[in-house]
Nucleic acid binder design. Structure first.
Length: 428
RNA sequence: GGACAGAUGGCAGAGCGGUUGAAUGCACCGGUCUUGAAAACCGGCAAGGGUUUAUAGCCCUUCCAGGGUUCGAAUCCCUGUCUGUCCGCCA
């Protein structure tokens, strides 16, 4: 949600910001709505003041036993006039809010211009000790080839139960998924100071609105028969923890993490990544969410990205970090880093984490505030979210990077061994 | 699912339909006292919006949400949401 006052004071900046999102000028029509609404509001308030005063007088007259009929008639006249203005005010407010709710966040100046993911800018690259992926190009296999050959990754049975874009894991690969989740959660809580939260997976409209999935992106979500939504990411429940709150400054920054399933209907993405478990209707993810004071969010963004990278480093998986360009940056973000892991089977880097600073955009929608020490006014918080990491995709990366062409098995990364009951290698 | 009870400021908790935006207590901030602190005492302390150069004044709105009754609603009525208690069902 946008700050009307900002648009009033910086209309040309606002239009420029929206232009970077590929939108035509917005400020003129927004401001004319705003102006009309304020005019109506002011007029209405004058009448309300008159009504209040006269009503008070009526009370006094009646108390002293006088005849208040004249004053009562005056109020009745005011009321008919007020009714129309109230109606108009409601209409104007609604259309103004709808307009604002549908507009994306203003991006940071650091976001490079660009049309799509091809224009994202690489920030850094990381390789484990040795400087090269352990699997050469010729020996590499895609994760589904590896998993199916091991007999522990079954798309057909999943399709029988649920249709396309589902998978069924079994045996050591199923355990590997659990091990990864456990390992990530332990790292985020014990080393990075995130508080583990177990959240609801079904949420209301307002909650989805708060983080920006609604009203525009309902198509990408699953809706239940009772009318609420399955979360597409734990960002939604975690961020909304502070919705409607005026939080105590000393509790900031707040850092939450959760391990949850994520449900995405991914409408419109048919045909993309159809093989394998790269793009599914359901997957597990460990999510990080930070809530900070405005002045701290930029630093927090770097920190959070580092927390996500730490997981890959411990797993010794090669990756790179890119800054998303203007055309690829999500609706609510001021700036986003994607972390892309090396997938030997695809001979390319693929997104495994996305870390976004949303500034006060979500906080405005959620009305999440704090009161700075010594100040009278409340301020909107800043919110950030990042994957730490997408478990399904990390599983893919482990399978492909730790694949042993000699026997078709998969080595268990060192840090996961304690979580795998001592298993060193997954074999048929 | 059935039957009750409730939802008020950061928290707790009052509130005959008419200076109640709201008593009181706690918390918090400032002051007096004190060598310092505590205690005691005094004062301040909701949010959003309009108007405005103004975070000054003035005004409007808000006591879960949305409707309604009324000249006037925190107070009365209806609907919804949430919470609690009892019963039923159940992993």
């Amino acid at each position: 949600m946008h700050d009307l006052r900002y648009i009033r004071e910086n209309p040309e900046n606002f239009d420029k910001a929206m232009a970077r999102r590929g939108l035509e000028s917005q400020s003129a029509s927004i401001l004319s709505l705003d102006e009309e609404r304020r005019a109506v509001q002011t007029k209405l308030q004058v009448l309300q003041a008159a009504r209040n005063e006269t009503s008070k007088k009526i009370g006094e007259i009646k108390k002293s036993g006088g005849d208040a009929q004249e004053a009562m008639d005056a109020v009745a006249a005011l009321k008919t006039e007020m009714g129309e203005l109230e109606e108009r005010e409601r209409e104007l407010s609604n259309s103004l809010n709808q307009r604002l709710a549908g507009l994306p966040n203003i991006m940071s100046d650091e976001v490079p211009d660009g049309a799509d993911e091809a224009d994202n800018v690489e920030v850094r690259k990381w390789m484990p000790e040795g400087g090269e992926p352990r699997i050469g190009k010729n020996a590499a296999k895609e994760h589904y080839e590896i998993g199916e050959a091991l007999g522990m990754m079954d798309f057909e049975t999943a399709a029988k139960l649920s249709g396309s874009r589902f998978v069924m894991l079994s045996g050591k690969i199923a355990r590997l998924e659990r091990a990864l989740a456990q390992f990530m959660l332990d790292t985020q809580t014990e080393e990075n100071g995130y508080t583990e939260v177990s959240t609801p997976l079904m949420v209301r409209d307002e909650t989805m609105y708060g983080t920006g999935q609604l009203p525009k992106f309902g198509e990408d979500l699953f809706k239940t028969t009772r009318g609420d939504w399955l979360i597409p990411t734990a960002e939604v429940p975690l961020t909304n923890i502070v919705a409607q709150e005026i939080v105590d400054e000393v509790t900031l920054p707040r850092r939450y993490t959760a391990f949850t399933p994520c449900f995405r209907s991914e409408a419109g993405s048919a045909g993309k990544d159809t093989r394998g478990m790269l793009r599914q209707h359901q997957f597990y993810k460990v999510e990080m969410v930070s809530v900070t004071k405005p002045e701290d969010s930029v630093a927090e963004h770097e920190r959070m990205t580092g927390c996500a990278e730490g997981i890959l480093q411990k797993l010794e998986l090669p990756y790179r970090v890119v800054t998303l360009c203007s055309g690829d940056t999500g609706f609510g973000a001021t700036k986003t880093y994607d972390i892309e892991v090396w997938l030997p089977g695809q001979d390319t880097y693929r997104e495994i984490s996305s870390c976004s600073n949303c500034g006060d955009f979500q906080a405005r929608r959620m009305n999440a505030r704090y009161k700075p020490e010594g100040e009278k006014k409340t301020q909107f918080l800043h919110t950030l979210n990042g994957s730490g990491l997408a478990v399904g995709r990390t599983l893919i990366a482990v399978l492909e990077n730790y694949y042993d062409p000699a026997d078709g098995g998969v080595f268990v990364p060192e840090v996961l061994k304690p979580y795998m009951g001592g298993v060193e290698k997954i074999v048929k």
